[in-house]
Nucleic acid binder design. Sequence first.
DNA 1: CTTGACCTTCCAGTAACTGGAAGGTGTACA
DNA 2: TGTACACCTTCCAGTTACTGGAAGGTCAAG
Lengths: 141, 141
Amino acid sequence: MNIGEVSKKSGLPAKTIRYYESIGLLPKPHRSEGGYRVYTSNDLMTLRFVQRARRLGFSVGDVENLLALWRDQHRSSSEVKKLAIQQIGSIDQRIRALENMRGVLIDLTERCHGDERPDCPILDDLADDETEDRFADETKT
Amino acid sequence: MNIGEVSKKSGLPAKTIRYYESIGLLPKPHRSEGGYRVYTSNDLMTLRFVQRARRLGFSVGDVENLLALWRDQHRSSSEVKKLAIQQIGSIDQRIRALENMRGVLIDLTERCHGDERPDCPILDDLADDETEDRFADETKT
DNA sequence: CTTGACCTTCCAGTAACTGGAAGGTGTACA
DNA sequence: TGTACACCTTCCAGTTACTGGAAGGTCAAG
């Protein structure tokens, strides 16, 4: 299979596959006479694995670890689970941060009449000295 | 005020303030004899505004628009509200994407016993051909 | 007159791609 | 046999929003 085909079958853009190869996440595939990358169905499985792990929000570095564990017949499932649980933690943090933003924005838009007039609590609050803490980052608690 | 002071008072790192200046988000401040940036309390207000808008997740480009509206006495509040509502929409999207990831990960970790043994549904599902759709990106709906 | 905190510019690196240019390959069709 | 066209190659640059670090200038105190 050429890169275009595995790209379609894995859901990873060809550019991205080459990029993953260049950073060492993926092993270098065989090359045809003409210099084209040639992939086996095994390679395709790896690409699928990578694509799914990325979709779950794992960083490229994490995917590297997951791939290593996947290939290691002697891994313990606890190592894998640990990575997954860390990932859930970081996702939870991001969700909380976004929900904070969302809350403030909802409040601001509800108080803004949104018509021709220039006065606007959104801008006022962003500028206002007294409003300090409503914009604070509460994700550290 | 020198940059260190406005940095403390605005919550923006000095590096970031210089960076914002370099990309044209902030106007060039006056300079002292020795070449130090000198900020007025007006400049400080702008820095605070920027910092708060960024904390609400607005992109630097959005902040530029918000700043322009803030400075424009003839703006209509509807323009501001529109930006805020767009921002809520994009936050909602991101939250939904993260919640999808979270759901899949929770399910995977619940099914993984996490002990010494190597067998692990997390890796199996990432690799498995039959598992396709559970990893699909449902944020487009 | 030196120490130390603070400031300056500039270059490079981060994450994870993405776009585009310039050019080679492979094949189907006239 | 030619040529059109899709597909492939490498390489360089750009994206977002900073951040780190080096090399060196400024300023106030002691």
